[in-house]
Amino acid sequence: MIIKTEDYIIDSSILNKITISGSMRLPSPLSYDQPFSLIKKALEESTTILDIDLTDLEYLNSSGITSLARIIIQARKDDKEMKLIINKTIPWQDKTLSSLKNLWEKLHIETN
């Protein structure tokens, strides 16, 4: 499935992989529920490590980071392994997402 808006695209059409690109600056963590439902579903259906490719995600505000962190906490509860693929040339990704590793030992961070 693909969610496509003027600002961002979320693509879950490949098994065990989600790609998020563009700019996500929604008003609250609650407003991420609908677009991030694709990540939750992909996590439930994953047969191995779920890759979340963020390398073309230019911006994600603190509400989005909170929502992503909540999914990571849920993955820990369900013992689901995840990998965030991040872009080291986008400053917020390296600075902010690396610390989320402390939420779940089976969260891997791969830098492109």
């Binding site: 609250s28 963590p29 609650l30 505000n61 603190s62 509400s63 980071i65 909170t66 902010t96």
Partner: peptide, 9 residues
């Protein structure tokens, strides 16, 4: 509902 992490971040 709110994240409350923006300024700390």
């Amino acid at each position: 509902e709110n994240s409350e992490i923006g300024l700390l971040n």
